[in-house]
Amino acid sequence: MFEYIKGNLAEITPSNAVVEAYGIGYNLNISVNTYSKIHQKKEVILYLHHVVREDAELLFAFADKVERDLFRLLIGVSGVGPNTARIMLSSLTPAEVATAIATDDLNRIKSVKGIGLKTAQRVLLDLKGKVDGDMAGGGALSGVGSVARDEAQSALITLGFAKPNVEKALDAILKDDASLKVEDIIKAALKRL
């Protein structure tokens, strides 16, 4: 139904963006990879995927068509919903997900929070041959320090993780390296949670 949205980036967190287009603010669910590509921009073009459920209508937005196409393939797998696919594309870059599928890297897929052995096997089986290992993606930009921690914590809680578990994971991660970027903190936390 919707192909893309072009407008001013009014608000952004690592899990959501508000884009104003023609006086209307659209709340968009984004991955950490998309966040890293757009968070410093004033005007953006984001490719959309519209999800209609009984209780909500959601818009998922992506910085490029490759990530959106991979998202659509992932949600087509039984047991992988939109939020799980978004966590997958936040934990790994689209290129890493595509490479893992192309090379049958079960452990890489299983390392994503919310993906168990059976779901990982289903992802590899269903998407083998549909995903090209050369798919592009990635990128990393962001702030440092307590602002990065706060943004990472907010994003992880929004993704459904319990606040005490998130805080514990962030403490351990930032104890080792306090200068990590928001995306790196979230990716490390997703591996621990």
Rank of each mutant, 00 (worst) to 15 (best):
M1E: 06
F2W: 10
E3M: 10
E3Q: 05
I5N: 05
K6S: 15
G7H: 11
N8Y: 10
L9I: 12
L9W: 06
A10K: 12
A10Q: 13
E11R: 14
P14W: 11
S15R: 08
N16R: 13
V19F: 10
V19D: 03
E20W: 00
G23F: 05
I24L: 15
I24R: 07
G25D: 09
G25I: 02
L28G: 14
N29Q: 04
S31P: 13
T34H: 06
I38A: 10
I38H: 06
H39N: 15
H39S: 11
K42R: 01
K42N: 06
K42S: 09
E43Y: 02
E43G: 08
E43V: 11
V44C: 08
L46D: 00
Y47S: 02
L48Y: 00
L48M: 01
L48G: 04
V51A: 15
V52C: 04
R53Y: 01
E57I: 12
L59V: 08
L59S: 14
F60R: 04
F60K: 07
F60A: 11
A61I: 13
F62L: 00
F62T: 06
D64V: 02
K65Q: 09
K65C: 02
D69I: 07
D69K: 12
F71Q: 03
F71G: 01
R72Q: 09
L73M: 13
L74V: 13
V77E: 14
S78C: 11
S78F: 03
S78H: 11
S78A: 12
V80S: 00
V80N: 01
T84C: 11
R86H: 00
L89A: 03
S90W: 01
L92R: 07
L92H: 02
A95K: 01
E96C: 04
E96K: 10
A98E: 08
T99Q: 15
I101Q: 00
I101E: 00
T103M: 03
D104L: 11
D104M: 12
D105A: 09
N107T: 02
S111K: 01
K113T: 09
G114A: 04
G116I: 03
L117T: 03
L117A: 12
K118T: 15
A120E: 09
Q121I: 08
L125A: 14
L125G: 06
D126C: 01
D126T: 06
L127V: 07
L127Q: 03
D132L: 03
M135K: 09
G137I: 14
G138N: 02
G138P: 06
G145Q: 05
S146Y: 14
V147L: 11
V147C: 00
A148P: 10
A148E: 07
R149G: 10
D150M: 12
D150Q: 09
A152L: 13
Q153W: 07
S154A: 06
A155N: 11
L156F: 05
G160D: 13
F161E: 06
F161L: 11
K163L: 06
K163A: 15
N165R: 08
V166C: 12
E167T: 14
E167W: 02
K168L: 13
D171K: 15
A172C: 04
K175G: 05
D176E: 07
D176G: 04
A178F: 11
S179F: 03
V182E: 03
E183V: 10
E183M: 12
D184I: 14
I185L: 05
L190T: 03
K191T: 05
K191C: 00
R192V: 08
R192T: 09
L193W: 07
L193T: 07
